[in-house]
């Protein structure tokens, strides 16, 4: 009956509480905090000038540009797909729906290396349609289109997976009401559906973008590692690292780590402020 209950008499003793918290904090410290700290310390280990040089030299600039370009293509593509897929899945009832959802989730269960491999086997020199592409002088693998394709593949489910449960929870009643009031299909989408899903969409975009800019395995397989041309930021980090140019490698890496932290903060704010307008469960 009381508005708030304390749990004290049957909770753990303060000693055990503190012990458990400390144990958990040690785990967090070693696996999460220190790796981030080490990135920034190593990045600035030779001073700010070195850092600036490492991130502004032409190859690094090219890598940054390519990463932005790839994300600028992959993210909108997956937004269009994600919205279309969740509209079809959440607003209509049809046979095979759960199978379709499984297929959409598929790229999450596939190793990034395989995500790259399949495009090499499809479009590469010895690939399924590789010879035909060669004849027509179209380069996909070991070029920007391949990198975009591999990135689209690995980020494929992010938006859809956020929107499907959200839109399923919201149901189709509001849209049906809008239709009954005479709104056209597009009017219904823009004025009813989109305002309802905007925070969920942003959440999906955020995660999709973080992965798109950071993907390494899949992109590594299809890129061919041509410096200044097919190097994304993560690949550039690898090259610098393998050349034992650690400060430069960590400098570029620190940009990516910064992006990750910004993503986490933005994600946290969304969950805190608009949690009820996001999909019910987040993993």
């Amino acid at each position: 009956m009381a508005p708030k209950r304390t749990f004290a008499p049957i909770a753990e003793s303060p000693k055990i509480r503190i012990g458990l918290v400390l144990l958990s904090l040690i785990y967090i410290l070693f696996f999460l905090v220190l790796p981030v700290v080490v990135v920034f310390t190593e990045a600035f280990s030779r001073g700010f000038a070195h850092y600036l040089e490492a991130v502004t030299e032409p190859d690094a600039q090219a890598a940054i540009k390519l990463t932005l370009l790839v994300a600028a293509i992959a993210v909108p593509a997956n937004v269009v797909f994600g919205v279309a897929a969740s509209w079809a899945i959440a607003k209509f009832d049809f046979v095979g729906k759960s199978f379709l959802i499984t297929l959409i989730d598929l790229p999450f269960s596939v190793s990034p290396v395989i995500s790259g491999l399949i495009y090499v086997l499809m479009f590469g020199g010895q690939g399924l349609i590789g010879p035909w592409l060669d004849e027509h002088d179209i380069q996909i693998v070991y070029a920007v289109p391949g990198i975009v394709l591999a990135t689209v593949f690995v980020t494929f489910p992010f938006v859809a997976r956020e929107l499907i449960p959200l839109m399923q929870e919201q149901g189709a009643e509001e849209e049906e009401a809008a239709r009954s009031l005479g709104a056209s299909g597009w009017q219904t989408f823009w004025r009813v559906t989109l305002p309802n899903i905007k925070w969920g969409l942003l959440y999906g975009v955020l995660l999709c973008n973080a992965r798109a800019m950071g993907e390494f395995g899949a992109v590594s397989v299809v890129s061919g590692h041509i410096r200044g041309f097919t190097n994304t930021m993560p690949l550039h980090v690898e090259i610098l690292y393998n050349e034992y140019n650690l400060p430069a490698a960590f400098a570029v890496a620190s940009l990516l780590a910064f992006l990750a932290l910004v993503t986490l903060v933005a994600k946290g704010i969304l969950e805190l402020r608009y949690g009820h307008e996001l999909a019910p469960v987040h993993h």
Partner: peptide, 13 residues
């Protein structure tokens, strides 16, 4: 963090 931090960055760190 492991969902957001690029794997290559995690690797070298």
């Amino acid at each position: 963090l492991p969902f957001a931090l690029p794997t290559a960055v995690a690797g070298i760190a």
